[in-house]
Design a protein around this nucleic acid. Structure first.
Length: 492
RNA sequence: CGGGGUGUAGCGUAGCCCGGUUAUCGCGCCACGUUUGGGACGUGGAGGCCGCAGGUUCGAAUCCUGCCACCCCGACCA
């Protein structure tokens, strides 16, 4: 707790492990790389879930749940998807343990309990869902099919990174089926927009919407839309993706419908997802040396009240005033917590709430009782002000909006000043090394050039921005013709 | 899987080269007292198979052998 924190991203893991979002990687080596999300961190995830879920419902989607296990034969049906994920699949091969005859008290896998067909632990659910959709779709009247699932998935990554790339993670995955290509593309774009407004308006994280290049595209997709965010250390983070899947899965799983004209046609598909990685984005976008900084809309507790007292009588008098404050704030839909623990001193509480990112702190002591005031402290600016009790509710209500806006603007300003247009490869390398952030550069459109730039600089094409201006130029690496600028960056 | 590094209390560590009292220090934890407007202080206390197994030695955290685990860098990636 007394550790000096740092806002440099490479050091985050040292402290978000400690307390901030109260996450931890599991201790047992067999599950190394999996995340334990403690209550405070989970409360943040629940707020995100609730908001996203609301948006999904508003756009006509329904939640459902599909199995964790995907029979191998289903998994391999869509070849590109299977190939893309094959290297990182956990596979269940047996269904029973038995006592180990050689090691008393130990268990071993029963060699007689081998599964006839291996089960893949879902790294994503297209296969199991599309094999189910086949039974759900017969007519154009069954479409569009707009399904979302909240689930955990497993990807056996070679290297894991807390929040950003854990072996198991929580996410939502939307899977939709449509009668026409246009409708499916519109759906993919719509959901990418939903993600963008969610991260910007709710999490106060500015993002760039764009298209992935072919080599960065989701395995099995015809087009991948994404939202790209920029972290405080100048590295980019893919915060969410939305895929237009064409008819690839429909063909692989034989999902056809009878059209109005009575013809058999394959459906058009999308899938889209965001994960607990967003919590990593939150940490790396807003945190400072005092810990996490939460935008008010996302904070489990928007306001915390700390009493300052010496005697029980003083606490009683303070509590009475605090009860009034809490009732008023709650009537304005502001979540407030009274931290009246007698096991910690005020200074320790201040530090803890700052570490946890509570947007606003109210301190109230005997001095305030006499004056009819409280002390308000903002987490985002770390400034304090004394406020009269009768104007407190209005002030707090106003600050909720102000803090939300300030956080967004600060992040946006950082992001915007870290998009650099370059014309030459020397400039490219120099900016990448000295300044970081996004580099807007011309690219000849080939995977070879993309690869070569990655090899030399470790920077990848994050996206072709949707609102990017289309201007011809020459490729920074090859000097060949380029149709437009794209965004490069080093990424997590 | 390649290259480097590290395993000592819940966490962070000293000691190891050069073997020798009861394994060091800080944080945290527990008790009591004084404290309480920015991470309190004092006193007392609990907590260790020094990664595991073997070896050398009168004696091993320390030397030797084997094994295991983890971390960092690279290949893979929401």
């Amino acid at each position: 707790m007394s550790k000096k924190l740092t806002s440099r991203a490479e050091n985050y893991s040292k402290w978000y492990n400690e307390l901030v979002v109260e996450a931890d990687l599991a201790e047992n080596s067999a599950v190394r790389g999996c995340m334990v999300i403690k209550p405070y961190g989970y409360a943040i995830w629940e707020k995100m879930q609730a908001e996203l879920d609301k948006k999904f419902k508003e756009t006509g989607h329904q939640n459902a749940y599909f199995p964790l296990f995907v029979p191998k034969s289903l998994f391999e049906a869509e070849e590109k998807n299977a190939e893309g994920f094959a290297k990182e699949c956990a596979v269940v091969t047996h269904y029973r343990l038995e006592n180990d005859p050689d090691k008393p008290g130990k268990l071993r896998v029963d060699p007689n309990a081998k599964l006839e067909e291996e089960l893949v632990v879902r790294p994503t659910s297209e296969a199991i869902i599309w094999s189910t959709f086949k039974g759900w779709v017969q007519s154009y009247r069954d479409l569009p099919l707009l399904i979302n699932q909240w689930a955990n998935v497993v990807r056996w990554e070679m290297r894991t990174r807390l929040f950003l790339r854990t072996a198991e993670f929580l996410w939502q995955e939307g899977h939709t089926a449509h009668t026409t290509k246009q409708e499916a593309i519109a759906e993919a774009e719509l959901m990418n927009n939903v993600y963008a407004t969610f991260t910007e308006d709710f999490m106060a994280i500015p993002v760039i919407q764009g298209l992935k290049t072919e080599s960065e595209r989701f395995a099995g997709a015809d087009e991948t839309y994404c939202i790209e965010a920029l972290m405080q250390d100048g590295k980019a983070l893919q915060a969410g993706t939305s895929h237009f899947l064409g008819q690839n899965f429909a063909k692989a799983f034989d999902v056809k419908f009878t059209s109005k004209e009575g013809k058999q046609e394959y459906v058009w598909a999308t899938s889209w997802g965001v994960s607990t990685r967003l919590m990593g984005a939150l940490i790396m976008t807003h945190s400072d040396d005092h810990g996490l900084v939460l935008p008010p809309k996302l904070a489990p507790n928007q306001v915390v009240i700390v009493p300052i007292y010496k005697t029980d009588e003083q606490l009683e008098a303070i509590t009475e005033v605090v009860n009034g404050i809490m009732t008023e704030l709650r009537s304005k839909n502001i979540s407030v917590k009274f931290d009246n623990r007698d096991t910690y001193r005020p200074g320790a509480k201040f530090a803890q709430h700052e570490l946890q990112g509570v947007p606003l702190r109210i301190a109230i002591g005997s001095r305030d009782l006499e004056n009819g005031t409280v002390e308000l402290a903002r987490r985002d600016t770390l400034t304090k002000e004394v406020v009269a009790l009768d104007t407190l509710t209005d002030r707090v209500e106003g600050l909720m909006t102000e803090i939300q806006d300030t956080l967004y603007k600060k992040a946006l300003d950082y992001r915007d000043t870290h998009i650099t247009e370059v014309e030459t490869f020397d400039e490219f390398k120099k900016v990448l090394e000295e300044k970081g952030g996004f580099i807007s550069a011309h690219w000849d459109g080939t995977a070879e050039t993309e690869d070569k730039i990655k090899e030399i600089t470790k920077a990848t094409i994050r996206c072709l921005p949707l609102d990017g201006k289309i201007e011809k130029g020459i490729c920074v690496l090859t000097g060949r013709e380029s149709a437009r600028r794209v965004l490069f960056a080093k990424a997590y």
